[in-house]
Amino acid sequence: MNNMEAPPGANLPPSRPNRGSRLLVQMAKRYDLYLMLLLPIAWYLIFHYGPLYGLQIAFKNFNPAKGIFGSEWVGFEHFTRFFDSYYFWRLLRNTLTINLISLLLAFPIPIMLALLVNEIRSKAYSKWLQNITYIPHFISVVVIVGILTVMLSVNGPLNMLIQTFGGDPVRFMESASWFKTIFIGSNIWQNMGWQSIIYIAALSGINPQLYEAAKIDGASRMRRIWHVSLPGIVPVIVILLILDVGQFMNIGFEKILLMQNNLNLEASDVISTFVYTTGILKGEYSYTAAIGLFNSVINLTLLLLVNRFARKTSETSLW
């Protein structure tokens, strides 16, 4: 506890607001830590908070010549134009359904996979299962969509299988009705292994005595999973669910963009891809900034709602 010199000590009481000068002394002592932070914090301000400042163009008619600040205000004009447009409901419906189905189907599967891994007694076998299911996570989106196109093409293995059983080949990638199935199915294929890691870790932290006790009480393995394993990982499930909802409106945007074509647009047109095609490709910056803002606001609202709900019902939450 001998800190006479400049170096900081650990147990300094947190400085109170009325002792501003003391805070300054503490800060000055550690000026080199702030020096380290200088670049990263500047980066955060520019690249995360800068775009927030730029978001004002959602309420303006952005004119590159006048700049973000100089362009004139138009209020909620872009928002009303979006809500009144014929594609508004299509975009909203696609965005919500794709993400809702993803949440319902793709969210529980890694949990089930983790429970499965946890039940396998052979260490080697369970390692194989884990290592194999992690592989697709490292494949790029472009390659995943490439694999999808070749697997599902008219000459691909799946259509060959269909034809062997006397069916007609299906143009999966060019069909609006198949789009969501393919998108969500391949997401599950790619991510179930990777997403199960956290659950597997949580499962291994459960006290083995709980299983023993349940066994002595005559609980079958299914019952042990249901009454010991699952409750043991509920906090982790809740946290990941909240985080997933926090990304609700943005899930898989890059992949949707790559899978999109004129023939499946009816099902694949979502808010984020629309912002890209209309904003970046066609240059309607203000209009699409407004749409993006609408997207973010829904997203944040959902996150706050779910977090609040989780805190009330399960006492687990992000904050």
Partner: peptide, 28 residues
């Protein structure tokens, strides 16, 4: 022992939940 650590951390973590979005970032 870093003074103002909570505030600085907040600047960082807030960005996980809200962003300016594609267009403002692109323009920047």
């Amino acid at each position: 022992d870093l003074p103002l650590r909570k505030g600085l951390m907040l600047i960082v973590t807030l960005t996980m939940f809200f962003s300016g979005g594609l267009i403002p970032t692109y323009l920047l």
